[in-house]
């Protein structure tokens, strides 16, 4: 565990907290993409299958990971519940039209081709890594559709982007301190994911400067 990894995880927690706070205080999930939340749920539930096979008290790190995994899974499920049940009437279904089935299919095909070992566990893990790298796209798509620039949804995306950036620093750190090699799958997808956020930041700043609506290319 290094400071970048811990900082990244904490930002991830903050982003989830922000999201839930926004929904609870405004009694609305306007501007939020249910499709992105569903994708994260799929990502977490395919990646964290090891929860069933790992003893949480095996080590301090395992314990920490277990707590975080349960937190991510439960908060993700709760967010979907809020959006689909309690605040369903505020959900912007008309604009949240990104076709996630294509993302899921593409991630599945890539995972079947690129994985570290030919086991169900490893293929699902690779699938979750591929899918996570593009899971934010429906949210960016929705933001673009509604043209909202100044709301808490952008803070949520900023936190997620910051979390991904810190994870890259964490990988650089681990590369030199632990001599980790052959992590191409996680590193490659993680970098793609961070670039998507960086691209969003770029257009966000641009639209703020010009005082216009957000326009992603």
């Amino acid at each position: 565990m290094n400071i970048f990894r811990l900082g990244g995880d904490m930002l991830h927690v903050v982003s989830i907290f922000l999201l839930l706070l926004k929904i609870q205080t405004s009694h609305s999930c306007a501007g939020l993409s249910l499709k992105t939340q569903i994708l994260y749920m799929v990502v977490f539930s395919t990646r964290y299958l090891d929860l069933f096979f790992t003893k949480p008290w095996h080590s301090a790190l395992t314990f920490y990971n277990t707590i975080m995994k349960i937190l991510f899974l439960s908060s993700s499920a709760y967010t979907i519940y809020l959006m689909q049940k309690r605040y369903k009437h505020t959900y912007d279904k008309v604009h949240d039209t990104f076709r996630i089935q294509y993302l899921i299919a593409a991630a599945a095909v890539l995972a079947l081709i690129f994985h570290l070992r030919l086991t169900v566990f490893e293929i699902l893990w690779a699938f979750s890594v591929f899918l996570e790298s593009v899971a934010i796209l429906p949210q960016l798509f929705l933001l673009q559709e509604t043209g909202e620039v100044e709301n808490i949804t952008s803070h949520y995306i900023f936190c997620l982007g910051g979390y991904r950036t810190l994870y890259i620093f964490n990988w650089v750190w681990r590369y030199f301190t632990e001599h980790r090699r052959n992590q191409w799958l996680a590193w490659g997808c993680g970098t793609v994911q961070t670039l998507i956020y960086a691209d969003f930041f770029y257009y966000y700043i641009l639209s703020r400067k010009q005082g216009k609506k957000l326009r992603l290319p």
């Binding site: 995880d9 090891d50 990971n65 570290l116 070992r117 990988w171 681990r174 992590q183």
Partner: peptide
């Protein structure tokens, strides 16, 4: 360490 993926990360 595991099979090569960073399984100790989230």
């Amino acid at each position: 360490a595991s099979s090569g993926g960073i399984k100790d990360e989230l």
